[in-house]
Amino acid sequence: MLVVLAGGMFAGIIGSLTGLGGGLVIVPLLALVLHLPLTQAVGVSLFGVIATSTGAAPRFVGTGYSNVRLGLILQVAASSGALLGALISHWVPSRALFLVFGLVMLYSAVMSFLPTAHDSAGATEDSPLAARFRLASRYKKEGEWVEYRVVGVAPAFGIMVGAGLLSALLGIGSGVFKVLAMDRLMRLPFKVSTATSNFMIGMTAATSAGYYLSHGDVSPGVAGPVIVGVLAGAHIGGHWMTVLPVKTLRRVFAVVLSFVALDMLLKGFGI
């Protein structure tokens, strides 16, 4: 119980400091260290993902960072993908899941070394679809409201189906894919991308977490400490964010992530 609680707390701290998401810590901890079957590790991790999203959400309320309309539109795709992922989760062989998880971890680690912020290259005009759904909005920056436009809704919608599918199969928030789609394809301000992604990951995880719970894959004795640990860790991480060198930390964690990814890949290859 203490190991799970500490693991959840570590996931919460890392998630809030690096933005890499707690699922990438919780699933390997439960599957590789505590030897839980992968479907159970995934089921429990999804509750950790909902806790991460819930714990971080109050910070964004009233700032305008979270574009709720855009989040809802894209959520139709993400929840559809998550539902599909949950439905096929018990038919996908564990080795294949280990392989995909390892690849996603490696991808997340590589992304940690690439620049992300695109604030200066925002769209100047809404695409017809964005205009139809009134997706342009504004956010607060240094006390002033900054307006922004939205493009690339259709391709981002497609990516969200994949992000939802991976979330349900691997027990992760898939924030790295959601932010990527919003940042690169929709050319949203980075803070808007991360806040809207946070709004979405909880709903995406809830779509498949209910499935895993009803299916008997979620032990409350494990999920409970994970939830408390993640919420406490996210709170601590929020405070540490101002005093720790987050960029360096993110890169160090990415290197650690690469080693865990390698372990997952080896398991996937049956080595």
Partner: peptide, 23 residues
């Protein structure tokens, strides 16, 4: 009403997840 219907659609998807997992 546009966002009422989209919101209801997402709720339906989340509820489907809750009710399809029964073993």
């Amino acid at each position: 009403w546009l966002y009422v219907s989209i919101g209801l659609g997402v709720i339906a998807l989340v509820l489907t997840g809750l009710f399809t997992g029964q073993s």
